[in-house]
Write a protein that binds this DNA or RNA. Sequence first.
DNA 1: CATGAATGAGCTTTCATTCAT
DNA 2: CATGAATGAAAGCTCATTCAT
Lengths: 228, 228, 228, 228
Amino acid sequence: MPTPPSRTTAARPARKTGARERSAETTRDSLLRAAIRVFAKHGLDGGSVDKISRAAKSHDRMIYYYFGNKEGLFVAVLEEIYRRFNDAEAAIDLDITQPTEALRVVVQFVMQYYQKHPEFVTLLNSENLHRGKHIVKSDRAREYSSPAIGIIERVLRSGVEQGVFRRELVARDVYMMVAALGYFYQSNRYTLSAFLGEDLEAPQTFARWEAFVIDSVLRTVSIQPVSG
Amino acid sequence: MPTPPSRTTAARPARKTGARERSAETTRDSLLRAAIRVFAKHGLDGGSVDKISRAAKSHDRMIYYYFGNKEGLFVAVLEEIYRRFNDAEAAIDLDITQPTEALRVVVQFVMQYYQKHPEFVTLLNSENLHRGKHIVKSDRAREYSSPAIGIIERVLRSGVEQGVFRRELVARDVYMMVAALGYFYQSNRYTLSAFLGEDLEAPQTFARWEAFVIDSVLRTVSIQPVSG
Amino acid sequence: MPTPPSRTTAARPARKTGARERSAETTRDSLLRAAIRVFAKHGLDGGSVDKISRAAKSHDRMIYYYFGNKEGLFVAVLEEIYRRFNDAEAAIDLDITQPTEALRVVVQFVMQYYQKHPEFVTLLNSENLHRGKHIVKSDRAREYSSPAIGIIERVLRSGVEQGVFRRELVARDVYMMVAALGYFYQSNRYTLSAFLGEDLEAPQTFARWEAFVIDSVLRTVSIQPVSG
Amino acid sequence: MPTPPSRTTAARPARKTGARERSAETTRDSLLRAAIRVFAKHGLDGGSVDKISRAAKSHDRMIYYYFGNKEGLFVAVLEEIYRRFNDAEAAIDLDITQPTEALRVVVQFVMQYYQKHPEFVTLLNSENLHRGKHIVKSDRAREYSSPAIGIIERVLRSGVEQGVFRRELVARDVYMMVAALGYFYQSNRYTLSAFLGEDLEAPQTFARWEAFVIDSVLRTVSIQPVSG
DNA sequence: CATGAATGAGCTTTCATTCAT
DNA sequence: CATGAATGAAAGCTCATTCAT
């Protein structure tokens, strides 16, 4: 390997704006984007470097040039999808003074994020199949964790202060509840469809599930049972 | 194929008493068990026929003899794990006249089943990665679906009749809620551990989560908020 | 790998005489012979499995079938060339009662063996480049050592008894002297040719060297200086 | 190639005093030294340009800049190790009027040079594996040959004049004898260790061999058998 | 003098599968 | 029921080398 520019935990360089540098960025980025697509569709084992480089209209070698090896590419993929999730989360506009409504928004955001980004779900499944061996290599990815729960924590606290949410709740539990209910629907939709004999891809099916989840979460955190 | 005993959708034959047949059962079964282990650990793509036949102390060729090909083996694996889940579920002793308690038992059963059978979780993830292409080939596996929800349905109905559970509930939603909360914890425990900075494998962590889930489910289905 | 028939230290099976078995032996043997040729010519690193399987008119896969991997093949190669050397050595007809003449024959045999089997020299060089990591894996190869020195030992003892050879000699030293003088000429003939400005491949050059070596060995072991 | 300072057969330039030139010397030299180490350890085929440039803390491209290609680098390596050997040989202090003692010193020098410079041995083996194709490209390397034998020739002639050495000896044979006995011990020490069941790296084992070799050489060249 | 980017061919090895008996 | 032998394709990765600046 002719000195690959190690980029694992460093921020994007973007030093020069010269044409060559841009072209390089493009190659690396298109490889990364292709990797997300391919790994999401075929898993880590099923997603070959060849499929990826071909999808990126580049060459196998470039993957090794930019990411060291397949594992390094997968680490970069995880970092990227966590980063995207984080960015999206940071963008939601929350009125914390209305805790019930705010929680509803958060739940909706999470569920719809999984819905719109099925690759996030599949890629995390791949990582879990491999017992989290890649994520532990990335300091960057792990840094993305705190914000997610932080938001819920603030919402819950506001609710407690206003006397509408239960005092004894742990933000982490509520976070996991929301995540689980949104994730599972996406992650297991094929076996569930077969199992339940119902097409989970139909919009109204999802809509009903979303309503149920919001209701369920609110019932879990609220002191007074929700109306409806 | 030299007359493989097609077993894909047929019911299990009563074990014959002939010596050869018994030995055959043994080979087939050990291959199947090995396949469950290997596919669960490495996924469908990562689990090679070689790894499996070696783990079963048999030979590659025997897989083709008994299961046609790798796909056929995976279908058999799915059937087997669904069957096991079904058998276990059928064995739970439920006092339907005590709906709250009965529901608690069901939730506990589901969560602990995932806990004790991580291969179930991983294998379903593999199947979902492949968009459920194997499960649709198996009538047998799909038959196992109804009982699971049936149980919850009976419990809910009993609760409604006794005036403690909400009338408007759909059993399928409650089933999915329970499944999701148990499944997600297992399925994503590696990324969650990294994400939350907390070891989800610790018994007390699981116990707390279990309590939260039971509470949450009961709050979701009950008319009066649960005490505690 | 579909259960390669491990043959590393076991003797040739030759169980059946059926046509298929013979064909298999042929494939394995032709791969082994091709490997000797190719490794001798290009070294262990330069000799690719592709070159070998092509030279044997077989396929890469068969190397893995019969030898596990490239290393396993090289181990088998070492065993084979040691075996051949041993067999040839066992075939020399020695009149031990004439120690001087017998020693002359032994020296001549060794020198001419290297001359006629340049692959022996090159392959041992490859193994030494790799710090003997393959030879230590083979019990079989190491068994071939003793006979070689044994012969020289018997010759020396006979000479001592007859009062013509020095008593204080160690067979191992004499063995190494003979080996070194024959081996070096072969092993280093290209650099020596450039260095000395003389073609060591010319028959008469070799003949003169051979005479010198015999003379030198006899002067080393004899009590009375040799005439000549 | 962008004007590489062709150095293949040219003599070393007197080091210029310009700062940049000095830095260049350093890069070139560290590449060369790294190449010696890496080629010695892994052979010509096993020693990749990447390993070398990395070991020199430089870049692949610099190898092409200074040496044209991998072959050119290997030629430079050969030239360098021959030069070093020559320099060392030129430094030995010989009292030619004491031919027996002088010869003893020469033998000792050669044996210990191989001992202390195992890379010399390995690299010559690599070159011989490739049939001397690099050495013939270098006029410089071939020039180093004559001195080596010249020394032995002078010693032998002195011995003949003093009536202690045999008249019919050819310096080249004696030179090769000495070289062979020292070289073989180094070159083949791994296979020999396995073969003889004795660790040739142990200092006392080498010391005994050295004594044997000196004795053997003296017996070969002397008229009267040596005492001891 | 030096660099980042790129390339095509090759490497060892593993894949699922089939043949003939 | 089971076996040894064989196969073509593809896997991840490294090779020496060249491009443009």
